[in-house]
Design a binder for these strands. Structure first.
Lengths: 287, 287
DNA sequence: CCCTGTCATACCCGGTAGGTATCACTGAGG
DNA sequence: CCTCAGTGATACCTACCGGGTATGACAGGG
């Protein structure tokens, strides 16, 4: 009736993303004709046209766009259910489910805070085991949504907290990281405008989901790469204060006066009901 | 592999809620044996035991509890995707998708605010059509989650805003609604303690999802019933200020000094990307 | 000790998901 | 203008599996 099987959703997502039945079928590991048929059935069942086929190109209708977004959320929720259930498996000794929590953190994030949090929590009675899962740039949200992680350290305004519950842990300013020898490195403070268009030092561009924002700067996907490029005098970067921890001798940090403060949150799926998670959050807010 | 079909989720939810294969099968409109088999397959696929069968009774394992919660969220997301897609159907004329928004409101909620909101929004250029969906006590959250509604007026602290984005619209105090002739009705103000244990006037109990909280007061599921019982001198109720709008001559409203303020929010699913919704929210915050 | 309730097993059938072959149509290029 | 490459739809077949019925196995209560 109005069921929407997971398989159908998967199929539609593939087609909607590829906008090409052949490639979508290949990605799904199946032949093209059954895929075409499945999508037709889906459209008939929903009573809605999802794709515009022009015999030569495929595009989304309005309803298709809606299903692309809502379906992504639904699929994520489903795989999250599977993952979390599987993870909870075996943990069934009465009196104390040996819960394990997966904590997603951006690799470059404040190491000090994380260390304090883990230490404090480990000291708690009946603390669950914490698995620290390093995540790429802005990937924590996705990880929480699809169940790879149970809880995450996020950094507003870079991460969006939409759809999660969260508690504020720490606020810090931002600094510009410059090559030590650069003229600007002599300043006591700088503004964003000062560092955003230095002719010889374009701002580095970070990979987000495999693609890079446009711009003149070098393409980066690794903090060490960035550190090296700065040391070589090829680029400049803007980071939260806590990045001072990993600066090299060839780097100079200069506070930025007008950069928005970075707020570190601990965030988790709003519907979570795990005792272990509650304990970790309590510990975190007490730091 | 780790797919978790919607059908399997539906089946498991039924069994997990009934804790009885026979009744669950009946509720699903199928025979018991295929249901047993489906659950076994599910457990085998997940590699996790979900139910403890004692040949005489069924209970959830830890993993089963997890799947019960996570699965509910996943199923809601899936049916939401179906509903919203279907609702977006046909709306495909280029240049302006004739979006229609479904707004869930608690029936007893501030009528004045709702009226102002609807009027203001209707005056906007290219306003979408708003369908007002009355919802039972604390049902708005569920409606947002499963796609029956796109946006809702919620009242903290009664509704939980967890998992939604929201904007604050209005804050009001609370009042006790008493029979006009009652001695307490002569007071200028009251405290919660004053009204919570009046021997002859027990607090009314509202239905939530068909069940009533325990207590001595009468069982209510309708504001008119409540008004009548108060008028008859049988009960007393606590409401936000805006309830004054529907008071009878036989009622007296007395402000409560220590009741938590009621904050009306406009709330919507965090991942929403609808233009029409954005417009409505903009209008609401400008009121 | 039997009887009832309850979940699991055995077996069968029909629908349907998926594969292969092919058609229908479109747009580019010579 | 015709041809050919590319792409989605159609036709048809098969095998799997979801669902049904009948029955077994076992626990508890009278």
């Amino acid at each position: 009736m109005d069921t929407l099987e997971t398989r159908e959703l998967r199929y539609f997502m593939a087609v909607a993303e590829e906008l090409h039945f052949g490639r979508a079928a290949e990605r799904l590991g199946m032949a093209q004709p059954p895929l075409s048929r499945a999508i037709q059935q889906l459209e008939r069942r929903l009573g809605v046209s999802l794709l515009k086929r022009n015999r030569r190109s495929v595009s989304l209708t309005g309803a298709g766009e809606v299903l692309l977004h809502e379906g992504r959320a639904a699929l994520d929720a489903t795989t999250a259910a599977a993952r979390r259930t599987r993870r909870a498996g075996g943990a069934d000794s009465p009196g104390g489910p040996r819960n394990r929590l997966v904590l997603a953190v951006k690799a470059a994030a404040s190491h000090e805070l994380l260390q304090k949090l883990l230490d404090a929590y480990a000291a708690e009675p009946d603390a669950a085991e914490i698995e620290v899962l390093p995540s790429g740039t802005c990937e924590q949200e996705e990880m929480l949504r699809d169940g790879r992680a149970d809880v995450a350290l996020m950094h507003a305004p870079f991460n969006s907290l939409a759809g999660f519950d969260s508690e504020e842990l720490m606020t810090e300013g931002q600094i510009a990281i410059l090559p030590a020898g650069h003229p600007l490195a002599a300043h006591k403070t700088l503004s964003l405008a000062d560092v955003s268009d230095i002719p010889d030092l374009p701002l580095a561009r970070w990979a987000r989901h495999g693609t890079y924002p446009p711009g003149p700067g070098p393409e980066i996907h690794d903090q060490t790469q960035l550190a090296q490029l700065i040391a070589l005098g090829r680029t400049v970067a803007v980071f939260p204060d806590s990045a001072r921890a990993w600066l090299w001798a060839e780097h100079t940090a200069v506070p930025l006066t007008d950069a928005p403060p970075v707020v570190t949150h601990i965030a988790w799926p709003a519907h979570s009901r795990s005792l272990a998670l509650a304990g970790l959050i309590r510990t975190a807010t007490r730091l």
